[in-house]
Amino acid sequence: GAPPLPPYSAGGREVTMKKGDILTLLNSTNKDWWKVEVNDRQGFVPAAYVKKLDSGTGKELVLALYDYQEK
C-alpha cells in the first residue's frame, strides 16, 4: 500500500494524480510535499508518492507510484 501521508505543510493547493502518471516537477525544496504540474494544473503531491525520472530533456519529471486524491 501507499506510505503514510506526511502532515500537510506545503501551503498551496494539492493536485490529484493516478498511479503511472508522468508529472513535471516544479519544486522539490519541501522534503514532504513536491510541487508538480499535471494537465496544466499546478499543485502539491506527497514526495513519497512519486519517483524522479531521468528525462534527458532538462525538464524534471516524476512518476506517480500511487493514486493521490487532493483533499
Rank of each mutant, 00 (worst) to 15 (best):
A48Y: 06
S9A: 14
A10H: 15
K19I: 05
G1H: 13
E60K: 10
A2S: 10
K31L: 11
L25V: 06
A64P: 01
K52N: 06
G58T: 14
I22A: 03
D32F: 14
P46W: 02
K59P: 14
N27A: 06
M17G: 00
Y66I: 04
G20V: 00
W33N: 00
S55M: 14
K52S: 07
L25C: 05
Y49S: 05
K31H: 11
L61K: 09
K35P: 01
T16I: 06
W33Q: 00
G20H: 04
L63R: 06
R41G: 12
D67Y: 03
D54Y: 09
K18Y: 13
S55W: 15
S28P: 06
P46T: 01
Q69T: 15
L5D: 05
K18M: 09
G11L: 04
A47H: 03
P3D: 04
F44K: 02
Q42F: 08
K71H: 14
A47P: 03
K59W: 09
G1S: 11
Y49A: 06
L53V: 10
A10R: 07
D32M: 09
V62Q: 00
G12V: 07
V62M: 03
K51C: 11
A64G: 03
P4V: 08
G12Y: 09
K71M: 14
K18D: 04
R13F: 11
P6C: 03
G11T: 14
G58V: 10
F44T: 02
R13T: 11
P3Y: 05
A47I: 02
L65D: 02
K18S: 09
N30H: 11
L5H: 08
A10D: 06
V15L: 15
G20F: 03
L63M: 14
K19D: 02
T16A: 11
K18H: 11
N39T: 08
M17R: 00
K59T: 12
T24P: 14
G12L: 12
G58S: 11
K19C: 06
P6H: 02
Q69A: 12
Y49T: 04
Q42S: 13
G1E: 15
K31E: 11
F44D: 02
T29Y: 08
T16E: 08
P7W: 04
I22Q: 05
G56Q: 12
R13Q: 13
G43N: 02
D21A: 04
K35D: 04
D40Q: 12
K59H: 10
W33S: 01
T16M: 07
P6Q: 01
T29M: 11
Y49K: 04
D54W: 11
R41V: 15
L23G: 10
T29Q: 14
E14I: 10
G43S: 03
D40F: 11
T29A: 12
L25M: 03
Q69C: 09
D54C: 10
G1A: 13
L63S: 04
K71D: 14
V36C: 05
W34F: 07
I22N: 02
D21S: 06
K71A: 14
T16V: 07
Q69H: 14
